[in-house]
Amino acid sequence: MQSGKSIIIENISKHYGSVKALENINFSVDNGEMFGLIGPDGAGKTSLIRILTSLLLPTSGNAIVNGYDIVKDYKKIRKTIGYMPGKFSLYYDLTVEENLNFFATVFGTTIKENYDLIKDIYSQIEPFKDRQAGKLSGGMKQKLALSCAMIHKPDVLFLDEPTTGVDAVSRKEFWLMLKKIKNKGITIFVSTPYMDEAELCDRVALIQDGTILTVDTPVNVVKSFDNPLYSIYSDNIYYLLKDLRALSATKSVFAFGQSVHITFNNGTNIEDVNKYLKDTGHSNSNTKIITPCIEDCFMQLMSVKS
């Protein structure tokens, strides 16, 4: 990999009939990077991952994975990548150990040979190795699927929404596992609809409606947020939202947990806003300036686009 790039994507488009799932995608992923593809369902994440894993042909454009062309050299790509699709693709009637054994055999290796690589993850489910995969909890299925996807020591690991439908604790654990895998030198390409997971990646691509909104490090994405962002707290978020939307100075306002995140048109005096809030009955409202998170940025980029 003379270029130091694990994945190079050039002008990839994918159309299904008249539906444009992907439009002109361009970016690259460095060796050993943890790269996040972040966007809601239907944004085109799965199509892109399937193209990069040689499972789909792009309508136009091309891509290089591990130095191999995804169309011409698909056989070579399949030897060097690991792939975990959106559904945990396990054989539910096979036990934990039988699943792992089978996938090891498919790649011409054995559990023993690469045990070190998966030890951290697999050891957590090893006590249940005789249980059928269908009877595992969601978190355990996820760990087994990950073990299966890595058993052959891939150079690049593709994970399609590994944390969807998984509770917050299991999600945290999963990202810790990914960190450890990354530290072993494996490039990770992971997609997720959860914006908060962006901060755990080295770099991210934000994707919406088949186009890339931005590609950068999470820090730089946040820096690119060009308006001061305020957080306003009030007892009743519903009325707070309504009142702020009625205010002409408001540029964008979104609920964020207990408070709202808001940007104003240039030249707005924040004291005027506070006064307005007191007047509309938000007696104990509290306004402060904050650093935006990825989700703020995503919404801003989305609004700019449309």
Partner: peptide, 24 residues
């Protein structure tokens, strides 16, 4: 039951707006 899984952040908030309105 998990009504907003996978929905984009803006639409997710519009969804919650609807919830607020009905609860009100």
């Amino acid at each position: 039951d998990e009504p907003t899984g996978g929905v984009d952040p803006i639409t997710r908030r519009q969804f919650w707006d609807m919830i607020y309105e009905e609860s009100d």
